[in-house]
Amino acid sequence: MGLVSALEHVVKKPIWDCRMCGQCVLHDTGMTCPMTCPKTLRNGPCGGVREDGHCEVKPEMRCVWVKAEERSRTLPLMPQDWREHFNNLRPPVDNRLQGTSSWQNLLSGRDRETPPGWTPEPAEAEQAEA
């Protein structure tokens, strides 16, 4: 682990229980880390959320995505576009980035590289309002 990733880990582990996936999407997910979901889901809650809003896998834990959805609406001081990005389709995790610094990957653009067969969002994605 390099110096920057070590620093990132020191900052983000205590606050968000950061798992160092190296492709941080906290700003799009109500400042709630989706990698703390036992299924590491990046695109919203699974169908197994319990009636009390707790996790299918860890009944003692509130569902990460129930929390994320609530926070994406209610957290103060969050830019509006961060709230609007909540329902975006996030691409598959690049497992090669595990353990690297998402700050560095953000600066280099590495965290936005997707597999060539992953098609970009269709234009109508912008109007996703159900």
Binding site: P45, G47, G48, G53, E121
Partner: peptide
């Protein structure tokens, strides 16, 4: 695909379905 209309967060489920339709 599938979706669960009856599990929390209830108000978000239709949006998640829409996301799947877009996909």
């Amino acid at each position: 695909a599938v979706e669960n209309p009856g599990a929390p967060p209830l108000d978000y489920r239709a949006q998640r379905a829409a996301k799947k339709i877009m996909a």
